[in-house]
């Protein structure tokens, strides 16, 4: 599937989804935005929500009409739609990796988690030599040292550190 076909296939899925999302927001407007009867329109706190949602509905509608009325610039079939959708779904795998990493940090600690994450992901994406694994570990260590130890970015210390002897545990909780 070439780039143009993929793009048009994706647009045929995305634009109607945008429209549906905008219509959903518009339909829930009265539930989700409080309207004060004693205030004029321009002083309503929901004015900007109203402007944005109305704008989204109108522009999404026009975008959909343009896509489905304009002559096709590429040969799109249901097969190309599925292929493009498949690409999006494939990307979700890495989101799962990311979220597992996020949830694991408070338990396993920032340094061990980052080393595991970078090494396993490097192996997953096809760099299976020792050289790349070492580079992945180095990246993890440098990231943790710079951000956690040096810049003191607030990332929780791992619960696992508390099982270690006190001086080491304190050091790890503070810096790694």
């Amino acid at each position: 599937m070439d780039k143009d076909t993929g793009q048009l296939a994706g647009i045929r899925i995305a634009y109607p989804a945008f429209l549906l999302f905008a219509v959903f927001l518009a339909a829930t407007f009265t539930d989700q935005v409080k309207w004060f009867n004693n205030l004029v329109l321009f002083k309503q706190p929901g004015l900007w929500a109203l402007i944005s949602v109305s704008g989204m509905v109108v522009t999404a509608l026009i975008a959909c009409i343009q896509v489905f009325i304009k002559p096709k610039t590429a040969d799109v079939t249901w097969r190309s739609d599925v292929q493009e959708l498949g690409f999006w779904v494939r990307a979700c795998e890495y989101l799962v990796w990311f979220m597992v990493y996020v949830f694991a940090v408070p338990y396993l600690g920032y340094l061990p988690c980052t080393i595991l994450f970078t090494t396993l992901l490097t192996l997953r994406v096809g760099h299976r030599s020792m050289r790349w694994c070492v580079r992945a570990i180095l990246l993890a260590v440098v990231t943790v040292v710079i951000f956690r130890a040096f810049l003191q970015v607030k990332i929780p210390g791992g619960q696992i550190y508390e099982w270690l002897p006190s001086p080491l545990s304190k050091f790890l909780l503070m810096y790694l």
């Binding site: 890495y94 990796w97 990311f98 990493y101 996020v102 940090v105 980052t114 994450f117 970078t118 992901l121 490097t122 994406v125 096809g126 760099h127 790349w132 580079r135 992945a136 990246l139 993890a140 990231t143 951000f147 970015v153 990332i155």
Partner: peptide
């Protein structure tokens, strides 16, 4: 390599 770069960006994004 682009995929190693992608992994690096994802790691740094977490911070």
């Amino acid at each position: 390599p682009t995929r190693f770069l992608g992994m690096s960006i994802l790691t740094l994004s977490f911070v």
